[in-house]
Amino acid sequence: MTYDALIPVIRRLALEAGDKIMEIYEADDFDVKVKSDSSPVTEADEAADALISAGLRAAFPGILLVTEEQAASHSEKGDTFLIVDPLDGTKEFINRRGDFTVNIALVENGTPTRGVVYAPARGRMFYTQADGRSVEETGAFDKDTPGVLTEISVSKPDNSALFVVASKSHRDQATEEYINKYQTKDSKSAGSSLKFCLVATGEADVYPRVGRTMEWDTAAGHAVLAGAGGRVVRFDDHSPLLYGKEGYANPFFIAYAPGVELKEA
């Protein structure tokens, strides 16, 4: 598998999954179930997962696939793997708030190297190109022909007036206490992996996550941010956030534009 082969496939699958998700989102009602970890799952999660998984397995049969909605994949391990969250931000979807995304990423030797984040209700799509640089695409989102591609880059932060973005559904007291360690000019909440993309485009300077996430929640956004010059580090010791961990669970982390003076946990 080459990056040149990978990017058109994951871009197209993200768009196709987005169409399926929006078809269900715009319906009068949809089914919501509760998984064993007490998190919600909808028919949109399952339909998007089936579409993306079939597409990736057909295109790249030799690559390990880890996906949120297939529990059997969570016990598999490999140095190189594709990782998918077919609908990141299920609570945003259920509450019809729009901040949900399709996430598809490639991880190599512990690092997300390529990825796509598509927010169908927001009409925004971000991905890494084959050369590793990240872009935002605008236009009609044709499945086969990319629209206008704008290379994105992180901000040059002013530590006396930072813009912080945090989780919309999980913004708790611990998060507020950490944010208050910075001098901020503004703060906003956003759902799903869009928070990584807001840092990647320079719309925010730092995104701290003091709460539970899984690797499929973060890998695609991490890849997009890295391709825009950003970084993602562990909350506790500021070492790089790595992937392929046991159970695919993340520690707390901070995503940021270089130049942000990170505060201690």
Rank of each mutant, 00 (worst) to 15 (best):
Y3E: 09
I7L: 13
P8A: 13
R11E: 12
A14N: 09
L15T: 01
E16H: 08
G18F: 13
D19L: 07
E23N: 08
I24P: 09
I24C: 08
Y25M: 08
D28T: 10
A44T: 07
E46K: 14
E46V: 12
A47S: 15
L51D: 05
L51N: 02
I52H: 04
A54R: 11
A59W: 03
V66H: 01
V66Q: 00
H74N: 12
G78V: 11
F81Y: 15
F81A: 14
L82C: 04
D85M: 00
P86A: 02
P86C: 03
G89E: 01
G89T: 01
E92S: 05
N95F: 09
G98L: 01
G98N: 00
F100D: 02
T101V: 12
V102I: 15
A105H: 02
L106K: 11
T113H: 06
V117H: 05
A121H: 11
R124A: 12
T128A: 03
Q129I: 06
Q129E: 14
A140G: 07
G147H: 09
K156N: 14
P157E: 10
D158I: 02
D158W: 03
A161C: 06
L162S: 00
V165K: 06
V165M: 07
K168Y: 13
A174H: 09
E176Y: 07
N180Q: 12
N180Y: 06
Y182A: 06
S192T: 00
S192V: 00
S193R: 01
C197V: 05
V199D: 03
A200P: 12
T201D: 10
G202F: 03
A204V: 12
R212L: 10
T213W: 06
T213H: 08
L225F: 07
A226I: 08
G229Y: 06
G230K: 02
V232M: 02
R234Y: 02
F235R: 11
F235Y: 11
L241A: 05
L241T: 05
E246C: 03
A249D: 15
P251S: 13
P251G: 10
F253D: 00
Y256E: 01
A257V: 05
G259F: 09
V260Y: 06
L262R: 11
E264Q: 13
